[in-house]
Design a protein around this nucleic acid. Structure first.
Lengths: 347, 347
DNA sequence: ATGAAAGCGCTAACAA
DNA sequence: TTGTTAGCGCTTTCAT
């Protein structure tokens, strides 16, 4: 690393104290609204603060106070509309409560996750919302056991004292698959999420349950797994469509992969829903502007975000609460892509 | 705020020193790879570190070292695909260089922006990438003048010593509008971005230039402004379409508003491109899966992200560089939504 | 090659 | 009501 200059340091509490003619302790008291300060002194200090444009040095504050009013969010993919909406909701809630929210993007990379985890820890955050890269990130369990309030979103965690908010993935996936079965499909393909995530497993499970209960249990060649990114959806769909006996319908485990699958289908000049029906997981505000309007299993995104915030807030205030898991229902948004005859008008 | 327990504090450098039988200075040296340490001592220290699971306290480190290897990103809307992709790129570059990247979401709210700005400052970040809420955020100029390396993305800033990366908005908007004119449209509507952002003004300007140069200069009732969010695009489109003399074509200034406009058009049962043609700003990977495939002015998103990172890195290493502004070209992706007869196949 | 010690800017316990 | 002072955990001279 090459040389680096410090940017001019701001004024310190000492300078404020000097200018106001008081001790630094008094300045500190004024700034943290302690009761026992005379109005006169308070005013002098405030004036000095304004005059110098003083702002407390948060790093120093944190070193002493060990309480940061800082909330961390660690997400696997900030470009995922589901995740970034959840993040925005969490931020909104905590900001309104006077917290500052720091976010980071692991890109589903375990090394990055570890790095951000320890960076958040040493920033002395008061709480963490995370979508872990897998269900057994020891560091998360460890931190939660050490007493750091943590809420896990979108997937379950096996270890640690963490709160969890997620959708009812099995039911959602089952509903999607049953819907396709009801429409007469027999060869229903599934583009699944990573099996090291409970969401991937649960959505797959819902699909399998539905198929099993039907007269046409899923054959393995109908199932491809991706990594929740667009490209993997594109690739999986391409392979599925080019197989000898392609599926007549597709259930895709998340938003980005569905978008990829859509592109793949369009590239092959195949028509939806006539040649192939498709149902995605995760609704998007513009799902009905897709070609054709996309049938999806809608997760209650905002609700998940707000619940995550609420759970975390509760644990911050009361660290000894028993760990809770909240499961939020999903809703099947029937639009044209599944080929249902009379799709209800849907938002 | 209610009571809050500290989560068990990790081991400190003192404990490591004690266990290794050396001074804390030596531990510090080992950890920062100083040359003059005997291999024997180094090994002892490393062992102690491992044994205690010691991790340096970054807050304390920062208080002394005044160099954090921390990069901040402040964005107006993390749910915007353009912005979050840029953010992901910046993160990627800096993480690879050993920096930790902290992001925050202002939701285009000036108060939040100010808060995050001073929070980033007092975290002693080494550099900042920001999409400011307006071109005259004094605090940004101030920080840059104080010596904090700052790169502004997507919009220009009038004050401060900052680097800037943005698209050639005027040219992009002009190209989009001219394309529609060439297709024979005369009443071309524009859903613009906020005029307090240079991107909003420049895209409007490109549209106006093109119209002016045509035989059908834009009438004011053809222009509505939104706030770059989906709802505003929906509302603007709805109003435009319900006017007495609705436009036959629409040029929309960003991705989210275009998606909103699309929804509005679909809700009114109007057909694209027969009844109305539409061109959006910002391409999206799934633009061709929209109904119909969407013609857009594609910004070089990744390129913008990487350039922003490069500019910032350069300034961190060499703070006295003169401020630079880099303008990146756009590309018109012709698809079906504009009604062009033979849209080229496009990715 | 190693250690002692001086702070970084702040908070809070203790004195006055 | 206000001031003095002891650290928080670490880096970095300055000695040795």
């Amino acid at each position: 690393m090459s040389p680096r200059r410090q940017h001019a340091s701001a004024s310190t509490i000492t300078e404020v104290a000097k200018l106001a003619g008081v001790s630094i302790a008094t300045v500190s008291r004024v700034l943290s609204n302690h009761p026992h300060v005379s109005d006169e002194v308070r005013q002098k200090v405030l004036d000095a603060v304004r005059q110098l444009g003083y702002e407390p040095h948060r790093v120093a504050q944190r070193l002493r106070a060990r309480q940061s009013r800082l909330i961390g969010i660690i997400a696997t993919d900030i470009t995922n509309p589901f995740l970034n909406t959840v993040m925005a909701c969490v931020e909104e809630v905590f900001f309104a409560r006077g917290f500052t929210v720091l976010m980071s993007n692991t890109n589903a990379d375990r090394k990055k996750e570890l790095n951000y985890l320890s960076m958040m820890e040493s920033e002395a955050i008061d709480g963490l919302v995370i979508t872990p890269t897998s269900e057994n990130v020891d560091r998360v369990a460890e931190l939660s056991e050490k007493g750091l309030p943590i809420t896990v979103v979108d997937r379950r965690m096996t270890a640690g004292r963490v709160d969890v908010v997620l959708s009812d993935n099995v039911a959602g996936a089952r509903a999607a698959t049953e819907h396709l079965l009801r429409l007469g499909h027999q060869r229903i393909g599934h583009i699944g999420g990573p099996l090291h995530l409970t969401s991937g497993r649960e959505r797959y499970e819902g699909y399998r349950e539905a198929m099993q209960a039907s007269s046409w249990p899923a054959s393995p060649d109908l199932v491809h797994f991706g990594d929740y990114r667009r490209e993997s959806g594109y690739n999986a769909a391409t392979e599925l469509l080019q197989s000898d006996t392609p599926p007549t319908a597709l259930f895709v485990a998340n938003n980005l992969m569905t978008l990829g699958a859509l592109n793949a289908i369009h590239d092959q000049g195949i028509s939806i829903p006539d040649d192939i029906a498709i149902v995605g997981f995760d609704d998007m505000p513009w799902a009905r502007s897709l070609n054709p309007p996309l049938t999806t299993v809608a997760q209650a995104v905002e609700e998940i975000g707000y619940r995550a915030a609420r759970l975390l807030m509760a644990r911050i205030e009361q660290p000894d609460l028993p760990p809770r898991t909240e499961v939020v229902g999903t809703q099947l948004m029937v639009r044209a892509s599944c080929g249902a005859k009379n799709p209800l008008p849907s938002p």
